[in-house]
Design a protein around this nucleic acid. Structure first.
Length: 332
DNA sequence: GCCACCGGTGGC
DNA sequence: GCCACCGGTGGC
């Protein structure tokens, strides 16, 4: 593998009926040497820019997470799939491709890249993934780490998963603390074309959903028992992964600074065709695996950056359309 | 009426 | 440009 890019894709298949159905994985195909930290930050930053050079500097470690909780967020992934041929989780129970008005992507799988061989390894549960992620910088993940649930696995084995167009990949952030016992950290992926890629929520043992550090703080103050039990703010992080797909998130128009002459008022920056990803694929049903072979992007693994949101209709429409595309890919 | 989801926006 | 916060609201 040459130096390839480092990416962490997160794949979202999609969710049906308002929930699962999606897959989410992130992966990297870049080599890591051993410093994850560096790699990681690079991954996050460069990647969207598309410059491969930065993208992988030397170590890009990749970690991916993919899980497909049936109930969104709860995280249990089905048993570790056959290492040799993992396929994105099938649509969950009743899911027909687009039959729901609400089709949101959700995390379908958690994967982490081996620091030695760079192959992606599926992590069996969200909890395990969170555990690995929490210390990924200090303790890089290697195939051997998976012995805990797959005694036989080694760098010699083929990767558990490769990026393909059935899922949306996103790069996760390293070293996010595991939630306190009894709490759950939920990552909700938004539909393509949204102004935000995802949202993180914490669910307190009481079932209360909290969506910001401010809310957590307030909640802890109101419920001192948690603090007495040792719960601290450091156990919460609202950092979200970054989508590999460049135009997944709608960019907001340049802020209109009060321009003195007022010439700026208006919609500068609104939906110009130019901001559509040039790599956009022709159609959703075509193979989105673009051969992005630019100089550094050669890894056969995980490299497609197909943009699904080829053009953006109107907000809502865009959203719907993109969601559908997403869904269609999966379903078709 | 509730709440999951979405989008606006202020601050960096 | 990104992130954090949170108000609004559609869908249940």
């Amino acid at each position: 593998m040459q130096s390839s890019p480092t990416k962490h894709p997160l794949e979202v298949e999609r969710e049906e009926n308002g929930f699962d159905g999606s897959t989410f994985s992130d992966h990297l195909d870049k080599p890591l040497r051993q410093h994850l930290d560096v790699a990681y930050s690079e991954v996050e930053e460069d990647y969207s820019a598309g410059d491969e050079d930065n993208q992988f500097s030397e170590n890009a470690q990749k970690q991916m997470v993919v899980y497909d909780p049936s109930a969104n967020g709860t995280g249990e992934i089905e048993a570790v799939p056959d290492p040799n041929e993992y396929q994105p989780p099938p649509f969950p129970r009743n899911s027909l491709p687009y039959h729901s008005s609400r089709v949101l992507p959700s995390v379908g799988a958690f994967t982490v890249q081996c620091a030695y061989c760079f192959k992606w390894r599926l992590i069996p549960t969200k909890e395990k993934y969170e555990e690995i992620r929490e210390h990924i910088l200090e303790h890089p993940f290697v195939c051997e780490t998976a012995h805990e649930w797959r005694p036989e696995i080694s760098c010699e084995d083929p990767p558990d998963i490769c990026q393909d167009d059935s899922m949306l990949w996103a790069i996760d952030k390293p070293n996010i603390a595991q939630p306190p016992p009894g709490w759950q950290r939920l990552l909700r992926i938004r539909g393509a074309g949204s102004t935000h890629f995802a949202d993180v929520y914490y669910v307190a043992p009481s079932g209360k959903r909290l969506r910001s550090t401010v809310e957590i703080q307030r909640y802890l103050l109101e419920h001192p028992e948690y603090m007495d039990a040792g719960v601290t703010m450091s156990q919460f992080s609202f950092q979200i992964p970054k989508p590999l797909q460049e135009n997944y998130v709608r960019k907001r128009p340049a802020r209109l600074t009060a321009s003195s002459d007022g010439t700026n008022i208006g919609m500068a920056g609104l939906l110009e065709p130019s901001d559509v990803n040039p790599l956009a694929l022709p159609s959703p049903d075509e193979n989105t695996d673009l051969p992005l072979d630019g100089p550094g992007l050669s890894s056969p693994l995980c490299e497609s950056l197909a943009s699904e949101l080829v053009d953006r209709p109107t907000k809502k429409q865009a959203r719907t359309a993109s969601q559908q595309m997403c869904g269609s890919k999966l379903s078709l």
